[in-house]
């Protein structure tokens, strides 16, 4: 009996930790979609690697409420993001804008890819150059092979 009680308690404990779901009744389906999209793209400042949608932190709740209010009042996505960037910096965006500090972040992989491609092409050329023998070299190789097989036979 006691075991059963403990088990039931465990069952309910998970409810206490479930992510808080704000009531979204005041939103139209289109607004709700925008709201969910926005909070998935914005970062919670205190928990660093969680989006606003994932986080339980008090600040994330505040920020979600703010986004909620602004979506309902009809503000555009860009306006809402700008509002938060003004306060928390580009850091709140999971999709950072292209500017001087993020150039390497955006184009670094592309640069690496180009470097890799150049190295690969150069290496291939070298290999091909060594792989193909001139007429004269062919003759020489043939003669060498012949002498070896003759030596082996004798």
């Amino acid at each position: 009996m006691k075991k059963l009680l403990v088990l039931t308690l465990f069952l309910f404990s998970s409810l206490a930790f479930a992510a808080p779901v704000e009531t979204l009744d005041d939103m139209t389906p289109e607004q709700e979609k925008r709201y969910r999209q926005l909070i998935a793209e914005l970062r919670c400042l205190v928990c660093m690697n969680q989006s606003l949608a994932d986080s339980n932190a008090e600040l994330a709740v505040d920020m979600r409420n703010e986004v909620h209010k602004k979506v309902v009042s009809g503000q555009a996505n860009q306006e809402i993001v700008d509002f938060l960037v003004e306060r928390y910096g580009d850091f709140v965006r999971y999709r950072p804008p292209v500017n001087a500090t993020t150039v390497l972040l955006w184009f670094g992989p592309l640069i690496l890819l180009v470097i890799g491609a150049i190295v690969l092409i150069k290496n291939n050329k070298k290999k091909r150059a060594t792989a193909s023998l001139s007429e004269e070299q062919h003759e020489k190789a043939k003669r060498l092979l012949d002498t070896i097989s003759e030596e082996n036979n004798s």
């Binding site: 400042l45 660093m48 928390y88 910096g89 850091f91």
Partner: peptide, 8 residues
Amino acid sequence: NPREVPSP
């Protein structure tokens, strides 16, 4: 320090 977010 990753917590040092540059303030706007």
